[in-house]
Lab assay of single mutants.
Amino acid sequence: MDETGKELVLALYDYQEKSPREVTMKKGDILTLLNSTNKDSWKVEVKITVNGKTYERQGFVPAAYVKKL
């Protein structure tokens, strides 16, 4: 869990989004878990840094590609 009590997951593999509802992640990324009720895909939040500014983006990733921490 992070400092706000949200559950975290670790990306086990790289994943490139295939639709606007998904998010891209790299192996080793730590993501905030938002919903894990679907056995196939979990909703997560990723933090992306562009030019020194951090943005948050929500979307789905394959459940088999992440592990709860």
Rank of each mutant, 00 (worst) to 15 (best):
A63P: 09
M25W: 02
V50C: 11
V44M: 00
K26Y: 09
V50R: 09
G59H: 01
K68V: 12
D14Y: 04
K47H: 10
E3Y: 13
L10W: 06
S19W: 06
V50L: 11
E7Q: 14
Y13H: 09
E45T: 09
S19F: 07
K67W: 06
N35S: 12
K18G: 07
Q16A: 12
F60W: 15
K27C: 06
N51V: 03
D29F: 08
T24N: 05
K6H: 13
K68S: 08
D14F: 06
A64M: 11
G28C: 09
D40M: 11
G28V: 02
L31F: 06
T32R: 14
V66Y: 01
V50A: 09
D2S: 13
V44R: 00
K67C: 15
K43R: 10
L69M: 09
Y15N: 00
N38Q: 09
L31C: 04
A11S: 05
T32E: 06
R57G: 03
N38Y: 08
S36M: 08
P20V: 09
G59W: 06
V46Y: 08
K39E: 10
V9Y: 07
K67S: 09
V46K: 11
K67V: 14
E56G: 11
T32I: 15
N38R: 09
R21H: 14
L31A: 07
K27E: 05
M25H: 01
E3Q: 14
L31R: 01
N51H: 08
V9M: 04
R57F: 08
Q58H: 07
G52A: 03
Q16S: 11
E56T: 15
A63Y: 02
K26M: 08
A11W: 04
N38K: 06
K47W: 08
K26E: 03
T4V: 12
N38H: 09
Y55K: 07
E22I: 03
M1T: 13
N51I: 03
R21N: 15
E45H: 07
L8S: 07
T4H: 14
A64C: 15
V50N: 07
L33K: 01
P20N: 09
D29S: 05
T32G: 05
R57T: 06
Y55D: 05
M25F: 12
K47T: 14
Q16G: 06
V61W: 01
L69P: 01
E17Y: 04
T32S: 07
K53I: 14
E56P: 13
Y13C: 15
E17P: 15
G59T: 02
Y15W: 06
T54V: 14
K53Y: 12
T49K: 09
W42I: 02
K67R: 12
M25R: 01
D29Q: 12
I48F: 11
F60R: 01
T32C: 10
D2G: 14
D40L: 11
I30K: 04
R57P: 01
S41A: 11
L8E: 06
K39Y: 08
Y55A: 06
E3C: 15
L33N: 01
G5V: 13
Y13K: 12
A11M: 03
T49Q: 10
T32Q: 09
T37D: 15
R57V: 10
M1G: 13
Q58A: 10
W42P: 00
Q16M: 12
V46W: 06
V23G: 02
